[in-house]
Design a protein around this nucleic acid. Structure first.
Lengths: 194, 194
DNA sequence: TTGATCATGTAATGTGTTACATGATTCA
DNA sequence: TGAATCATGTAACACATTACATGATCAA
């Protein structure tokens, strides 16, 4: 699934201009699909060229004209087809977990900062999701509700896990950092001890 | 954090050849950092050219010689520096959640298949992590333990969430699919109803 | 007067994915 | 006989990130 397809999906719900789509990515998809102008605008041009959306310009004063994109029937069919075909990849890439894996090579203060920061980011994500998916606000779709709940649940589980288990990393056995090479070498020659 | 840096990190724990690194990515990092040969081999060549690792060839019969890479002191310093600097980005990209967001445009049987598949993938991930991070096996590092626990916790939370909330998506209000265009258009002209 | 919001986009760069290419050995 | 494992890599392609470029309005 690429940005192009997701733009088409958003346009299947409502016509919009690039700027609005960007805001939707930031509010509704922030926790599981990122996209910037650099991929959204080319995607829209591409969709228009393929006849999957129509574009109509709405002049404004003081600003560039809005280019409002509306999905075509071909676009709608294309999107539903793409939804059915795509293998549902769910992929995490986490520099945070990489850093934690190598926690014993990180300075102790730095490590605590990283942990604190990550916890507050998960809390922030929870708050963000709550703000954009309040059930009482303008009748939210079932899909949006499900996805928001998923994001909240996972973020809370993650934050809670870190809070409860950070001690594993923090009480370390006489940490050896860059200064003392000999001991590091000796302690890592062991096979299969990754 | 790129594949190059992570390779360097693995080599900071043990010397290894590209093939072994790939296996490590698949076993230990599978749930939060993917990499294939197409990025690992070039990364190793790059690291060697930069003097961050040394390479020694070990001939074998019947197979190409193993190229065993060993980290240098410069490499070790470089890695610890990278660990300290990198902002700890934790990023999810999920086609599965995209599909769920648009669940009402998916055929009902297909939807259930997707949900079932995703649940079993989370279960599979849990099993996978357990296999590679048994505390009783060869003294696992604190970092590895923490990361494995994180992966397990999150995967279980995710699977459990889907099981408990799939009904939100499945009991749908008289689903309209591609066949009936008029009604779809009428029901989505509403502003802000993403 | 500073920064945020609205609104468009391009260009260079970086990075990863996928498919291809080779080939012996071992296990079922 | 066929598939998996070990072991190396390259090349084409797709894709996204980042920085750049422009510029008016409005609220603090």
């Amino acid at each position: 699934m690429d940005v192009k397809t997701l733009c088409l999906g958003l346009l299947s719900l409502n016509e919009a201009c690039g700027y609005e789509l960007k805001r939707n990515f930031e509010s509704r998809f922030k926790h599981f699909f990122a996209a910037g102008y650099g991929s959204i605008y080319p995607a829209l041009a591409n969709l228009a060229a393929a006849g999957l959306v129509n574009c109509r310009e709405v002049p404004q004063d003081g600003r560039p004209a809005r280019k409002v994109y509306e999905i075509t029937e071909a676009g709608r069919a294309h999107f539903q087809n793409a939804l059915g075909k795509t293998p549902p990849i769910h992929k995490l890439r986490s520099d945070f977990l990489v850093a934690m894996y190598f926690a014993d090579q990180i300075d102790e203060n730095k490590l605590q900062l990283l942990l604190d920061k990550q916890i507050s980011e998960f809390h922030g994500a929870t708050v963000h999701i709550e703000r954009f998916a309040q059930p009482q606000s303008t009748s939210i779709s079932a899909g949006a509700q499900f996805v928001a709940g998923f994001g909240k649940t996972v973020a809370q589980a993650a934050a809670s896990y870190i809070e409860k288990n950070r001690h594993i990393l923090e009480c370390r056995p006489a940490a050896k950092l860059t200064e003392n090479h000999d001991q590091i070498y000796e302690s890592t020659t062991n096979e299969e001890r990754l």
